[in-house]
Structure formats: C-alpha cells, structure tokens
Amino acid sequence: MSEVVAVIDYGMGNLHSAGKALEKVASGQQIVITGDPAQVRAADRVVFPGVGAIRDCIAVLRETGLDQAILDVIAAGKPVLGICVGMQALMARSEENNGVECLGVFDGQVTFFGELQSDTGGRLKVPHMGWNQVQQGMAHPMWAGIADNTRFYFVHSYCVTGLADEEVAGRCEYGLSFAAAATRKNVFAVQFHPEKSADAGLTLLENFLRWRP
C-alpha cells in the first residue's frame, strides 16, 4: 500500500497548485484532495493549505469538523504541513477580521503588518508579496538541500509573531522579523507558498513527503 497524502480542501481557493506540486515530487505516494474529516484522519500525511480570510477559514473548519480532524492527526503523530493561512490557523489567535480564535496548536499570534517603514524610510507595501529570504532558525529535515537564506514566494498581509524561539524554524524580515516557518514535533508550517517557490519550494515539499518525525 502506498502512502496517502491528504491535502485538506475546505472550499477556500486554489488547491490545484499545492496538489500539482506534490504530485510533481511524489515518489509513489498518493495525493488526495479532500474535505472529508474521515479521509483526513485516515491519511498518512496531511497538508493544510489556505488562502483568503482567516475568519471564513476557521468557520468552515469548525462547521465541517475538519478542525478536530487536524488536531487528531497532529495528536496521532503524523506529519502535518501548514501553508500560509494554514499556518496562521494553527496559531492561538489572529487579529484579522476583528479577532479570531484559531486552532491553538502553537501559542503564536497572527498580527497585521501595519504601517511599516523600510530601511530607507519609505512605506512598505502590504501585502508582503514576492520573493523574500528565509533565515533557517534550526537544522531540520524539512530544510534538507535548501541553503540558508534561500528566497521563497510570500503573499500575505498578516504574519506570525510571539512563538517560542525553539518553535521558529525560519525567520523572515519585512519591516519586522516574523516567523516564516514554525515547527513542533510532527508539525511544520510555513508562511510562504512552497508550491509557488520554484525549485526551493519543490525541494521542501519533497522533504515533507520523506519526513519521519
């Protein structure tokens, strides 16, 4: 039996990219895009992508029972990869949409970039959109074959701060320093889009498919 990798589909935007990128790097694993909590629980690995507003995301997860499925998979020790809003949803709380309680897997906070200034004094554009460097906070199997300070593609207006140092797997600077990657045990979460980050992103996804936490 080949391993099953579930990509969680909760009806919020473009999962095509994450699914296709995983298919590209898969070696025998079966990639399944699903919104069925039972199928998520049954999978060997789970990818939790996300775009759009966090309030809608969390609301759909709770309605469908996918929130509990994600927590169960994490508790079962299976590898879980959160991407973008998927990473943010794993935090304690987001200040987007006037404040949203999230899944609380990590203690971090999701905060707005706000009126940030660049080094040269100009206003920083929000969303933070484009290729920025990720400073690896630790050696980790997910960073295998990826040089420190490699650029990944970001697009977001809110970012994760307030994590414990040992949970920050990567940092990024954009007016402030925020968590580009968070990890604890079998969970790894990234603010950038590996599925849109060319070779470096594909390497990270390949690492995830091989990761044995």
């Binding site: 298919e23 593609y153 599925e195 980050s197 060319a198 992103g201």
Partner: peptide, 11 residues
C-alpha cells in the same frame, strides 16, 4: 492555464 499551472511552480 491548467497545463501551465501543473508544470510551472511560480506565480
């Protein structure tokens, strides 16, 4: 678009 998106992994 589908064809490009399944083979090109940049935005």
């Amino acid at each position: 678009v589908e064809q490009i998106a399944s083979q090109v992994f940049i935005p």
